[in-house]
Structures are given as C-alpha cells and as structure tokens.
C-alpha cells in the first residue's frame, strides 16, 4: 500500500494489471449472464463505468465525513448498499426524464447494477487500501473501464463461438469460465508494469 501512488497510476493499474474482474473476480454474476453479445455487454459496461465512478466518490465522502467522525464504521456495509441503491434509482429516473434515447440503450441494465458486487467491491477496496479522494475516483473509473473491457471482449468471443461444438455439460457457464481463465492468463502479461495491492 504505497500512499504516494498517483491517481493516474491507479487508474491504469485498475484497468490492466489489477483488472477488477479477471484478478479480483468481482461482478462475475452479471458477467456470466450478460456477456452473450457485444452490444448488450457494451450497454451494461457503460452503465457500470458511470455508476462506479460516481458511487466511489459518494461513498468516499460519506465514509470519511460521516461514518468516521460519528464512529460508525461498522455500519459501512449497510450505508454503502443504501448509497448505491439510491444513486442507481436516481440515475434511472433522471435518464428516463431527460434522455429517452439513453434510457432505451441503458434502461434495462440500470437496475441490474444494484446487485453487481463490483460496485460494492470497489468501495470496500478503496477503504481497505486507504485511498485519498482523487485516488478513489480514479480507482472507480479505472475499475469500471477494466470491467467493461473484459465483458466486451468476452461478448465478442462468445458471439464468435455460437456455432462451435462445446461438450454438453460444459455449455454456458462452464465454457465461459474457462475462456475467462484464458483471458486472465493473457492479462497476467501486464503484471510487471505497475502493481497496486
């Protein structure tokens, strides 16, 4: 845990070397369920980037300016969940009201995000690693982009594999996990560059 790590470094580390999905396994449920096509993967990915960046900022402020002074840090799980759920709800209403086009693209994905463990995971990691405000926001944005990168790549691979003959018991989640393993293997190639832990 180096405190001198600049926000810029954390941003790139969260995308490549410490990809939130392929090294921390966060957000697997929706990753397995939605990654059948590039189009829907991209939609969900964009929604995740947006929500993750904003909630990591919000959660940072709530944690350091409300929970720590009041000595209520043990309640952070409940508070984070409520912040995330409320934020997602508000975003959904705002988008529906002001941008019908965006609502058509992202609409069905937004409620899914509340239960995406990557969002809560980012908030918890940021507390454990003692990030500053700018570091937290960079980590949230990088994490979201990294997650999107992984799910879009997976969507592309699965689209290509539609005609492939996969052993019956391995169909669906089984083969997706193994492909994810291969992707993780490829991402290990980045690890030498920067390290955050």
């Amino acid at each position: 845990m180096e405190l001198g790590l600049s926000a810029f470094v954390i941003f790139f580390a969260a995308i490549f070397t410490n990809n939130i999905l392929l090294t921390n396994f966060l957000g697997m449920c929706s990753f397995l369920a939605v990654s059948r096509e590039v189009k829907s993967s991209l939609g969900l990915g964009l929604a995740v980037i947006f929500v993750m960046t904003c909630t990591s900022a919000l959660n940072y402020l709530v944690y350091h300016h409300l929970l720590v002074p009041l000595d209520l840090v043990h309640f952070r799980y409940i508070v984070f969940i409520i912040v995330i759920a409320a934020f997602v709800q508000i975003v959904e209403m705002v988008i529906e009201r002001f941008s019908p086009v965006l609502y058509v693209i992202l609409g069905i994905f937004i409620p899914l995000i509340t239960v995406n463990c990557a969002i809560l995971g980012v908030a918890l990691f940021m507390i454990i690693r003692d990030y500053s405000f700018s570091q937290s926001v960079a980590y949230g944005a990088g994490g979201g982009i990294g997650w999107t990168l992984a799910i879009v790549a997976m969507g592309g691979i699965r689209q290509r594999m539609k005609g492939a003959k996969v052993p019956r018991p391995l169909e669906g989640p089984g083969i997706t996990l193994i492909i994810a393993g291969l992707m993780a293997l490829a991402f290990i190639g980045f690890t030498g560059m920067i390290q955050i832990q």
Partner: peptide, 22 residues
C-alpha cells in the same frame, strides 16, 4: 503457481462445473 493465481480459479471452477453437470 498458476493454480493459486486468478486463471487457475477460473479453470478449476469451469472444470468442476463440467464434471458436476456430467
């Protein structure tokens, strides 16, 4: 070493699902 790193987890669980569903 690969088994305790991230890819090993994916391969192992994928393999487990394969066996269990057979």
């Amino acid at each position: 070493t690969i088994m305790v790193m991230a890819p090993g987890a994916f391969f192992m669980l994928g393999g487990f699902i394969w066996v269990a569903r057979s």
